[in-house]
């Protein structure tokens, strides 16, 4: 795995962005940006290149699943790996995300080990 890959962390809660950035730094990643909802993430995705999206589901303006579907419909963005990290743990959520093309799915709460393992699976 390229530890200098550019990762975009998307969550409306600053707490979760902070925790995720701490975990990614612990895991050795050095190039991390953040966005506070799907629409601001989309703006960033259109203006610069990212190698990985780690995204919450429930957010104001544009949700994580809406961002995922929008990216999959865009030829420039559809191949960027997308890890959904969410408190929405019910089966229908997981099924909807899989059908939309999510790379993997993490249910909150999570440990650093879980995030590391999921990233390995995405890039393995």
């Amino acid at each position: 795995m390229d530890m200098s890959m550019r990762i975009l962390v998307v969550d409306d809660f600053a707490t979760m962005r902070r925790i995720m950035k701490n975990i990614l730094k612990q895991l050795g990643f050095t190039n991390i940006s953040e966005a506070d909802d799907g629409s601001t993430a989309l703006e960033q995705l259109k203006s610069s290149k990212f190698d990985m999206i780690i995204c919450d589901w429930n957010m104001p303006k544009m949700t994580g699943i809406e961002l995922l579907k929008t990216m999959k419909a865009d030829d420039d963005l559809k191949n960027i790996p997308f890890l959904m990290v969410t408190a929405e743990a019910q089966k229908q959520n997981v099924i909807e995300a899989v059908q939309a093309g999510v790379s993997n799915y993490v249910v909150k709460p999570f440990t650093a080990e879980v995030i590391g393992d999921k990233l390995k699976r995405v890039f393995g």
């Binding site: 809660f13 707490t15 929405e88 743990a89 019910q90 249910v107």
Partner: peptide, 19 residues
């Protein structure tokens, strides 16, 4: 920062319990 964290904790508790 504490308020934001409490919001996220509440969100996670709600999600886990609803699962």
């Amino acid at each position: 920062e504490i308020a934001d964290a409490v919001g996220e904790l509440t969100n996670m508790i709600s999600g886990q319990a609803r699962k």
